[in-house]
């Protein structure tokens, strides 16, 4: 057959596409379980790192079981839904549902007798989704630690939210307004001048990453507000006493 004829070219292209697609599909399907395991362990690593526990990926499973005492899924009004496995909740899908149908995963950790609440976050950055975990101390007000990740923020600007120097700014910040006692979250603020003030509900933003920073602000407020009914039951002293 003439190699330069149109028919040959079409047949060649068709066969090639089918062969390539089939082999890629087989490879992707057979590697999927291992990739999922990696993602699962990374999630455990992320959750643990918000409470200051850094583990290797291999040990993530054991350490996770050691520190995380309870995993519960909440409804928006603060009651516990026993029928849902908190760890398997996919926030990306959950966020698309109406609030009443959403379930909110909450992890309770314990280190040296101190209890921490770890809350998964998810929101929108400039280009795509951003997500993370934030942990609160047992006063439900002080942030113990936070980790963030993103899908497609600009490298060097918005993508810097994954850096530890940014995540460290959240440590010890308060999520309640010290005067009114209202839940306000933490604002990622442009031109922040509060220095090391941990009681002003704000941290310094990253230059050039305003929208990603606003995304982080919104994400923290939007997600945490649904946990307040439950968390307030857990601890009545909350911020009002501070």
């Amino acid at each position: 057959m003439n190699r330069d004829s149109n028919a040959y070219t079409f047949i060649f292209a068709t066969v090639m596409v089918i062969v390539v697609a089939a082999s890629l599909a087989i490879a992707a399907t057979s590697l999927k379980p291992m990739q999922n395991e990696n993602v699962r362990k990374e999630k455990m690593q992320n959750i643990l790192s918000t409470i200051g526990v850094e583990v290797e990926r291999e040990q993530a499973g054991e350490e996770f079981n050691k520190y995380i005492k309870e995993q519960i899924s909440l409804t928006a009004d603060g009651s516990i839904d026993e029928s849902v496995n908190a760890f398997n909740i996919d926030l990306a899908k959950e966020l698309k549902k109406p609030v009443e149908e959403q379930r909110f995963p909450l992890y309770k950790a314990e280190i040296e007798g101190k209890q921490y609440f770890i809350i998964p976050l998810r929101g929108a950055g400039l280009w795509d989704a951003i997500w993370g975990y934030i942990s609160l101390e047992d006063d439900i007000n002080t942030i113990k630690g936070a980790v963030f990740d993103h899908k497609g923020e600009t490298p060097g600007l918005g993508a810097e939210i994954t850096q530890s120097w940014f995540e460290k700014r959240f440590e010890e910040e308060k999520i309640f307004d010290p005067e009114s006692g209202e839940f306000v979250g933490v604002t990622v603020m442009k031109g922040y001048s509060g220095g090391n003030n941990k009681d002003d509900n704000a941290i310094d933003a990253i230059s050039g990453a305003t929208i990603t920073g606003d995304g982080v602000t919104d994400m923290i407020y939007n997600r945490l507000q649904y946990y307040m009914p439950y968390l307030k039951q857990q601890n009545v002293k909350v911020a009002l006493n501070n």
Binding site: V20, L24, N38
Partner: peptide, 30 residues
């Protein structure tokens, strides 16, 4: 390989291999 689409064929082969490498890395060197 038909001469007229040889660049496309090369691209498809390279792209397929790259996706394979990427998948293998995600599974074994996350």
């Amino acid at each position: 390989i038909p001469n007229r689409i040889r660049i496309i064929v090369q691209l498809v082969v390279v792209a397929a291999l790259v996706i394979l490498v990427d998948q293998v890395l995600k599974a074994f060197a996350y």
